[in-house]
Amino acid sequence: MIRVFAVCGMGLGTSAILKTRLRAALDATGVDYMLDVTDASAARGQQADLIFTSAELAEGLKGTSAKVVVVKNFMDREEINQKVKEAIEELQS
């Protein structure tokens, strides 16, 4: 079971959109996962395996044990599918 966060500034608007795309992408990889939306402060205080966020917020998440993946365009399903696939492969190897 891998734990995944979608992170944006407030953990409300953008991350909720990101979540729907991440869910589709994660389902496609077939891994067992738990997916939550949150803000940067909360993400730092919790254990996760994978964090998807924007470039600005990734900076502040560097200290966490999770692998931080920067998403450029939150609407771009292809970018997200590609990055989820790569991240999962890296985690499993």
Binding site: C8, G9, L12, G13, T14, A16, I17, K19, T20, R23, D36, V37, S54, A55, E56, K72, F74, M75
Partner: peptide, 29 residues
Amino acid sequence: GEIVPAFEGISSRLIPNAVPALDVPIVFP
């Protein structure tokens, strides 16, 4: 976190060519 994905799922089926209106940080980059 639960209601938005459900709404998006419904809207994409009913109005396939709709344009999503998104939270303000989307323009920050």
